[in-house]
Design a protein around this nucleic acid. Sequence first.
DNA 1: GTCTATAATTCGATAGAC
DNA 2: GTCTATCGAATTATAGAC
Lengths: 206, 206
Amino acid sequence: MARTQEQRKAETRRRLIDAAADLFARKGYAGVSAEAVADAADRTTGALYKHFGGKEGLLLALLEVWKEETVEVLTAAFERMPALDERLTAIWRSLNGAQGRRGDAWLLLEMELWLQGVRDPVMAEPLAERYRDIRRRLGEGLRDWAEQTGAPLRHAPDDAAALVLGLIVGAAVQHRLDPSTMPDDLLLAGLADLIGTPSAARRQPD
Amino acid sequence: MARTQEQRKAETRRRLIDAAADLFARKGYAGVSAEAVADAADRTTGALYKHFGGKEGLLLALLEVWKEETVEVLTAAFERMPALDERLTAIWRSLNGAQGRRGDAWLLLEMELWLQGVRDPVMAEPLAERYRDIRRRLGEGLRDWAEQTGAPLRHAPDDAAALVLGLIVGAAVQHRLDPSTMPDDLLLAGLADLIGTPSAARRQPD
DNA sequence: GTCTATAATTCGATAGAC
DNA sequence: GTCTATCGAATTATAGAC
């Protein structure tokens, strides 16, 4: 049946991308052979080359899937959590792999793909677009929060999103090396400084 | 003369490390062969293996040199610049390679070494120590600044340093992909939020 | 201490069977 | 669409000349 064939094809594709995500994160794109990816996916290099044309095609496909997953995680964080602190904590948790399907490989894959994107012109645009998506979603969330609570943002939503994303990423980089230097409450206090939340900044209206 | 021999040996070592810094940043550690590093340094793999034992030894030596260079850059920024804004801008500039001997490779090498350090237990400790050094130096600078100006820090010096470093790193990651999303004045405003500078936060004393 | 030459392995990519 | 088999190129690391 054509349906079964198509299912198998889709599963092979998914398995290869999942294996690539795991291996690229743990060993780096250049440090992993196409055969190693195929083995981890219980397939062969033949299938990999038919689907993606080669290792670079697999990397590009992974980046596209990664973009979609990121938006899903962000959306879930904003839809399920009521308070801003909880939303930001959910994003922080997923980046640090405390939960989520990528395990603790999220941040590593984040940085690996960033490096590849900065180095390879072909990957630069999709990667830049991914960061634009993240900031847009984050900016909307902050704007909505400000409207609903009546608390003023310290910066324009786009700017606030860029700063919040920046601190979260930079905090995660340090947290991975030494968790004690970036406890949850310190990060949340820093984010509150950037956003303008009164509770942390004790800011007086002017 | 023994002196000339020693000079030549030291130069070979320096040339190999410089070439490694440039190539590892631009193509990644796993993406560069030992021979390519030797060629770029106008030496051969034989010399590389005698000095460092292999590619991994070269990477470790590079990390040590990198640690020293980072402290030098930080110290220079804090000693030559009078105002806090200028000091932070100097750090920002060196990370983004607007100046300094590493050119625009600083941030790439930063992330490349971070990834290798997170993946390889042998490199984890030196890398974590480097970040501790940076935070310590940054924390001292912030504490001194607060004492001299009488302006209160919003967080303890260590915490403030971790937040400031975090935002600078995360801002640089975004800036590299799309400079327009992280202009200098936005970053400085964000840093002022974290530090507690009145001019940006318009914070009232309490 | 540095170079040339090379051994042993592994890589990306392809061809052809099923 | 997937697998087996394999080619040519590139890689790490070593051996021996100077």
